[in-house]
Amino acid sequence: MNINIAPLKIIREQIEAFTTSFIAVLPNLLAAVLFLVVVWLANKLIGSIYSRVLARTHMRSSLKAALQSLVSVAVWTFGLLIAATIAMPGLTPTKLLAGLGLGSIAIGLAFKDIFENFLAGILILLREPMRIGDYIEVEGISGEVKKITLRDTYLRQVDGDLILLPNSVLYKNAVSVHTDWDRKRVTIIVGIAYDEDVAEGRRVIEAALKDLDTVDQQRPVEIFAQAFNSSSIDFEVTWWTGSRPVEIRRSKDKVVEAVKTALDEAGIEIPFPYRTLTFKDPLALRSSSNDEDPSQGVENT
């Protein structure tokens, strides 16, 4: 049986050519790997020195971490470019930069959102619109800022859930920083009956808030008769307290309790909503007593 050895010869020649080429470039590859080890050590050394320098500044920890990451990325980018030219001597810096220029267009289109969040993270860290521990709200999402990275901001909601919010959302939308100031104004509505004296009701409510420890006594408590409601005269009661959510809830709890107690002790009615029902025809009411006539009706208007 005749065996055609031409394909086997071609495969053998290709393997020999590949082996010869690999052996020829092996010193360059080893040199490139060795250079990357040097880059790794240099990155560690530069990171250590940079950390010591930043430790003497008053920058926020999140901004320090972001700057360290940028320095590390720059060192590795520069090192990889040099390693590529060492491994492939025919690859000149001009050709490499030209290739990166063409490839960056495709990479930019593919990773547009990532780069957008990355740049937004840098701008947020530099502008310092919020701090770790602040309570913020954006696009209906609220929580405590736990961590700010170059891509995401970590928010811990009051129910314990952790939200990873892309930095571009924070940068492009209006953000409410609730704890930017340590004080916040809180408002509730208190209603008294129409038969009560409005001035006396205002005085009683104001006295109820006077000695509460959750009400900032250095700022005025404001009480305004606001509206004629369906069954009450409504007061708008405003005071200042701590800006954190738990402080606001605790203050509201004590204020509502104190106002209710004070109005009750003063004999001032907090009315329930009244409803007046009108019937077209007389409404027949049946008595539970067997001695009464069940057919007797009572007319209601």
Score class of each variant (00 low, 15 high):
residue 234 D to Y: 05
residue 203 R to N: 12
residue 64 K to M: 10
residue 203 R to G: 01
residue 229 N to K: 14
residue 243 S to G: 10
residue 202 R to W: 03
residue 2 N to I: 07
residue 241 T to R: 01
residue 20 T to A: 11
residue 232 S to T: 10
residue 276 T to H: 15
residue 259 V to P: 00
residue 25 V to H: 12
residue 263 L to M: 11
residue 195 D to C: 06
residue 228 F to K: 11
residue 189 I to N: 10
residue 141 I to V: 11
residue 103 G to V: 02
residue 290 N to T: 12
residue 130 M to F: 11
residue 195 D to T: 12
residue 48 S to T: 10
residue 247 E to M: 04
residue 183 R to P: 02
residue 104 S to H: 02
residue 286 R to E: 13
residue 296 Q to H: 10
residue 252 K to P: 04
residue 73 V to K: 15
residue 241 T to M: 01
residue 220 P to R: 15
residue 141 I to E: 15
residue 44 K to W: 15
residue 201 G to N: 06
residue 211 D to A: 00
residue 237 V to D: 04
residue 11 I to C: 11
residue 267 G to D: 09
residue 253 D to A: 13
residue 267 G to L: 08
residue 273 P to N: 10
residue 185 R to D: 09
residue 66 A to Q: 10
residue 43 N to P: 04
residue 163 I to C: 02
residue 73 V to I: 14
residue 100 L to Q: 11
residue 217 Q to W: 00
residue 273 P to E: 12
residue 124 I to C: 02
residue 173 N to S: 10
residue 148 I to R: 00
residue 221 V to T: 08
residue 20 T to Q: 14
residue 65 A to M: 11
residue 211 D to M: 01
residue 95 K to C: 04
residue 219 R to D: 05
residue 191 G to W: 01
residue 32 A to M: 01
residue 126 L to N: 06
residue 184 K to F: 03
residue 282 P to W: 06
residue 255 V to M: 01
residue 195 D to I: 11
residue 191 G to C: 07
residue 67 L to F: 12
residue 281 D to P: 01
residue 300 N to H: 14
residue 138 V to W: 04
residue 99 G to R: 06
residue 104 S to C: 13
residue 281 D to E: 15
residue 86 I to C: 04
residue 200 E to M: 13
residue 129 P to N: 06
residue 138 V to N: 04
residue 174 A to Q: 12
residue 219 R to M: 05
residue 111 F to K: 09
residue 39 V to C: 03
residue 35 F to C: 06
residue 117 N to M: 14
residue 268 I to R: 00
residue 107 I to K: 05
residue 235 F to D: 00
residue 228 F to M: 15
residue 226 Q to K: 12
residue 239 W to V: 01
residue 164 L to C: 03
residue 29 L to D: 01
residue 27 P to C: 09
residue 106 A to S: 14
residue 61 S to D: 13
residue 36 L to M: 13
residue 195 D to W: 06
residue 38 V to Q: 08
residue 245 P to E: 14
